[in-house]
Computed example of a mutant assay.
Amino acid sequence: MTADVVPLPRRRPTLDPMLALTAHGMNAVNAVILERMQSDIPLIPRLAGHLISGGGKRLRPMLTLAGAELVGYQGARHHKLAAAVEFIHTATLLHDDVVDGSELRRGKAAANIIFGNPATVLVGDFLFSRAFELMTEDGSLKVLKILSGASAIIAEGEVSQLTAQRQIETSEERYLQIIGAKTAALFAAASRIGAVVAECGEREEQALDDYGRNLGVAFQLVDDAIDYDSDAAEMGKDRGDDFREGKMTLPVIFAYSRGTPEERKFWQAAIAGHRTSDDDLAEAIALIGKYDAVEATRDRARHFAARAVDAISIFPDGKARAAMAEAAHFAVARGY
């Protein structure tokens, strides 16, 4: 069976198997997170805790734990490293919200709205520093190289996305490169670390890296789709944020490429920032619906999720592999 035709489970996929698989380890990870986000400066734990305790799925650190479980690792090094992964992720979210001027994050006011941009940026820097402390404490240059490399790639991806903003001619290929950097790089690094701490071979490392990378792309594509397919209460951010910010995400790329000349003129004005009202958003959603652009985006996501599942087929059947496969299916089927 090829990667492109791996079927979805018949029941609606959930994260429950992944949560069960990693529950014990996540208790240890959360303890590290709680300890290392503390500071003598009260604003730091207050602001960091606003986001860290804000109901995120913590999927990235779970991938580190699941990868370690998949390869039979028996130690505890991965707990601190999973916490480092979560700190890197949280730091990037704090910085992103400042760059984007976001008002909502995970269904509540974003940190920058409550605490201001300067404090939000600086606490993001603090969390990056904590992440690197945890990496150096681990003592593995290989781990340090993987996670520091991912951090640099994430920053490059964010800058690339910024330069593509309001650029109507952004291609699907360029957009996949952007999300491969800004989202999938950390998924890949988080997954790979499990094989590294277990001292597996390159084949196992690469399989987990491929799993995480493809899962990350699928996850981001579904986020793109949700922005034009759900309400803010469900997805935890303002509907149409991407539209108003002039972001060329895949649903827009599809709708623009398939549109009539008149429809393309609308998209050109909208992405340039001249058509951003609620009525304009409604028109954008109608055009995206007309060309099935949300479903086409989810189809792309299913392709990458199937590749993720295929990547871990080199490992024996078991609870870990099944949980990781279902997590990939969940990433596509979710509505939030």
Rank of each mutant, 00 (worst) to 15 (best):
E158N: 07
E158M: 04
E158H: 07
E158R: 01
E158S: 07
V159Y: 03
S160Q: 12
S160I: 09
Q161L: 00
Q161A: 05
T163V: 12
T163N: 07
A164I: 00
A164D: 07
Q165A: 11
Q165E: 05
Q165C: 11
Q167Y: 13
Q167R: 15
Q167A: 13
T170M: 03
S171F: 12
E172I: 07
E172L: 13
E172P: 03
E172D: 11
E173R: 15
R174I: 11
R174C: 00
R174S: 14
Y175L: 04
L176E: 01
L176W: 03
Q177L: 11
G180Q: 09
A181D: 06
A184H: 03
A184M: 03
A184P: 00
L186R: 01
L186Q: 02
L186C: 00
L186V: 10
F187L: 11
A188F: 00
A189I: 12
A189K: 02
S191V: 07
S191H: 00
I193G: 00
G194S: 02
A195D: 10
A195M: 12
V196R: 06
V196F: 11
V196M: 12
A198F: 04
E199Q: 15
G201V: 08
E202V: 15
E202G: 06
E202K: 15
R203C: 03
E205V: 00
A207Y: 01
A207N: 03
L208K: 01
L208H: 03
L208M: 02
L208W: 06
L208V: 10
D209Q: 09
D210Y: 02
D210M: 12
D210T: 07
Y211K: 05
G212L: 09
N214R: 10
G216L: 06
V217D: 00
V217R: 05
F219G: 08
F219M: 14
Q220R: 14
V222D: 08
D223L: 14
D223W: 11
D224F: 09
D224H: 08
A225P: 05
A225K: 01
I226E: 10
Y228Q: 08
D229Y: 06
S230H: 10
D231Y: 09
D231G: 14
A233M: 14
A233F: 12
A233N: 14
A233Q: 14
E234M: 13
E234Y: 00
D238S: 15
G240Y: 11
D241V: 15
D242I: 08
D242F: 09
D242R: 13
D242P: 05
F243V: 12
R244P: 05
R244V: 11
E245F: 01
E245G: 02
G246Q: 06
G246I: 13
K247E: 04
K247P: 07
K247F: 08
T249S: 15
L250P: 07
L250I: 12
L250N: 12
V252T: 13
I253M: 13
I253V: 14
F254M: 11
F254V: 14
A255G: 10
A255D: 09
A255N: 04
Y256T: 04
Y256G: 04
S257C: 09
R258F: 09
T260P: 00
E263H: 01
R264H: 05
F266P: 05
F266M: 10
F266Q: 06
W267F: 15
Q268H: 07
A269K: 09
A269T: 04
A269Q: 13
A269Y: 03
A270P: 10
I271A: 06
I271S: 00
A272I: 10
A272E: 13
G273T: 07
G273C: 10
H274L: 15
R275M: 13
T276H: 12
S277Q: 13
